[in-house]
Amino acid sequence: MTESDRTPRKERVELALDLLANLEHEQLPLPAAVDRIETVTTDPALVRRILDEAELRGILEREDGRIRVRRGGYVSFERDVVSREGDFDCRRCGASLSTGHFVRLDAGELGPFGSSCVRKVLGRE
């Protein structure tokens, strides 16, 4: 069982909504948004619930296979991303890491990620 499987569903939903509200780009393809949500949960029903809830809360709009973020800000690498040394596996790609990058969001912390994956998750690559 992974760490995200042990995190209560409500907390995973809030964390994913917070991540979506802080995407770097105003628009992106739906598969790219799903890729980011899957750093929180890979449960297909929960991914759909998160997208529906994001739309209900006015965080995003979905149209023609794209999403448009309607509110939020962006994650500052200097302020909101912390690095820790240790033995980690990247939440996005599964690679072994000696340095994990963690994103601090209002709803909680998301990570660990490798240096390139954290940039992809936040829309910087």
Rank of each mutant, 00 (worst) to 15 (best):
R48M: 01
T41M: 07
V47D: 13
L15C: 07
H25M: 07
L23K: 02
L17C: 13
E26L: 04
E24L: 09
Y74I: 14
E14N: 13
P29M: 07
D43S: 12
G65R: 01
L60D: 04
L28R: 13
R49M: 01
E26D: 14
E14W: 05
R57K: 14
V34D: 07
A32W: 01
N22K: 08
A32K: 11
A45V: 11
R62N: 03
D43R: 10
L28N: 04
G65D: 05
T39S: 09
V75F: 08
R70A: 12
T39Y: 05
E38P: 01
L28E: 14
V34H: 02
E14R: 14
G58W: 03
V69S: 00
A16F: 11
V75W: 04
G72D: 10
D64A: 15
R62A: 06
L17N: 03
I37E: 01
V47Y: 07
L15A: 05
D18W: 11
R71W: 03
V34A: 07
L30F: 02
L56I: 09
P44G: 03
G72L: 12
E55S: 14
V69N: 04
E26W: 12
E26P: 05
G58R: 10
I37R: 04
E24G: 02
R57H: 10
D43G: 05
L23D: 01
E55W: 04
D64E: 13
V13P: 00
E24F: 11
E63S: 15
T39K: 07
L30H: 04
V40R: 00
V47L: 04
E53R: 13
V75I: 14
E63F: 11
A16V: 11
I50G: 10
T42E: 15
T42Y: 08
L51R: 03
L51K: 00
E63R: 14
D64P: 00
L46V: 02
L51D: 00
A45E: 15
I37W: 04
E53F: 08
L23E: 13
G65W: 00
E26I: 09
D18E: 15
L20V: 06
P29V: 02
I59M: 07
D43P: 00
H25S: 13
A32M: 10
A45D: 15
I67E: 02
D35Q: 12
G73W: 09
R49I: 00
L51T: 02
P29F: 01
R49A: 08
L28P: 06
R48V: 08
R57D: 10
G73C: 05
P44W: 01
E24M: 01
R48S: 15
T41N: 07
L15F: 12
A16S: 12
V34M: 07
L56F: 12
D35L: 12
D52M: 09
N22I: 10
I67D: 02
R71V: 05
P29Y: 02
L60T: 08
A33G: 09
E26S: 05
L23W: 10
A21N: 07
